[in-house]
Design a protein around this nucleic acid. Sequence first.
DNA 1: GAAAGTTCGTGAAAATATTCTCGAATCTCG
DNA 2: CGAGATTCGAGAATATTTTCACGAACTTTC
Lengths: 231, 231
Amino acid sequence: MKKTARSRIIGKSRSVRPPIVRSRRTRCLLTHTVLERLMHYYICLSKYDPNIEWISSPHLAVQFRVDDTQVRKDLAVIGVKGRPNAGFRRSQILERIREFLGLGRSLKAVVVGVGRLGGALVAYRDFRELGLEIAGLFDNDPRKIGGSIAGLTILSTDGMKSFIRQRKIRIAILACPVFVAQILAHELVEAGIRAIWNFSPTTLQVPSGVFVRNEHISVGIGEIAYHLLPF
Amino acid sequence: MKKTARSRIIGKSRSVRPPIVRSRRTRCLLTHTVLERLMHYYICLSKYDPNIEWISSPHLAVQFRVDDTQVRKDLAVIGVKGRPNAGFRRSQILERIREFLGLGRSLKAVVVGVGRLGGALVAYRDFRELGLEIAGLFDNDPRKIGGSIAGLTILSTDGMKSFIRQRKIRIAILACPVFVAQILAHELVEAGIRAIWNFSPTTLQVPSGVFVRNEHISVGIGEIAYHLLPF
DNA sequence: GAAAGTTCGTGAAAATATTCTCGAATCTCG
DNA sequence: CGAGATTCGAGAATATTTTCACGAACTTTC
């Protein structure tokens, strides 16, 4: 495809394939792959026995099924220094990842679509540890509105925009049926949402500047089926 | 790290970083990245308006936020031929992906750990369309055992191994708390499970030959937080 | 305190993945 | 039919990611 007018207009400008963004703190760039691995480390290391403090890259390599050089490179990127013959400090790894990714400061989010999946996400414990704070629940099913999950009341999507604007919420977790996803995404963006965590199995079209992370769970089935082909 | 005895023993042998596996049908290799994109295409294209049959790579590129060459390459890998000035046949894309990934034949699975997340997965509609058939639900909480979700009764984990062996089930969806994940994974492998879809936030150590896909949902928070750093 | 054994840190090399370029095929419309 | 617009297909060129290789740092043990 030549760079025709049409192709230049839509998308492409931001968050294309390897979504690279400059960190505020340093000049360093974290690529998508590094980001994913760092989170993987974080999630698992934060659940380690608190007595274990020094961890070597070969140990992490086995644990996470990556190369040990990879681990060292990843940690080097976020400025974690190791000690020869000892490894890295677990607490420092966690701290630096938190800092670098901005997990510390509380991230307010709304959940849009409170079906089974949405409900599970609202109640998911690990989110709070990571700084994600769910501030509002929305659904357009009259039978659900007024109900509550994890201490939060489910509200009508009618008041969603003003709710988000008033509280300056930047993150939306979208767990609604496919056929309303795009419409809701549009509303969310209008209300000032800057990141959509999309659990509905569609692609959303959003203006550049809005970050979308697709969490298409079914993707896993593909990989599993493929790896099971010989059986 | 030199290739010492220790590092050679654990892992490394199969499904390291880019989990490449040879397809039975052709000599072609699908890498992790291609696999993910193909599933992404599949999930979204299967929900398209049935009247739309011809789709061009520039169109798909905008939709999925990838390069149009990428789309063509992906489709070439699975042997989908396009037509100049028209694009590709939607039905053919879907068919070839299904064939190539082995989505057609019904894939039996058990769900282990029926909390909120496990329950949501059991009820998740799209799974069946993709060929994933949930054959059994297991939990070790006596209050849950005997209950039912989506027409399936929750059974005790005591009988899990024989259940899996008898029905020759190959896939397990693990949605249990972290502290029992490794133990259960071990049992599952003993029972003959060949692929574990791990939703618990730990890394599992399994013998080589068993495929693990980690679905650490919280990873998404990291990416979102990072992209929201400037705000 | 020297020797043996780990492990970090890093630059170079290899492997993968993505994008560019452009000729050829196909359709539309006057 | 011929001009113009669109799109495929494929090889070359880039860019990114992963792995290798090895010197230096640190511990432990004799």
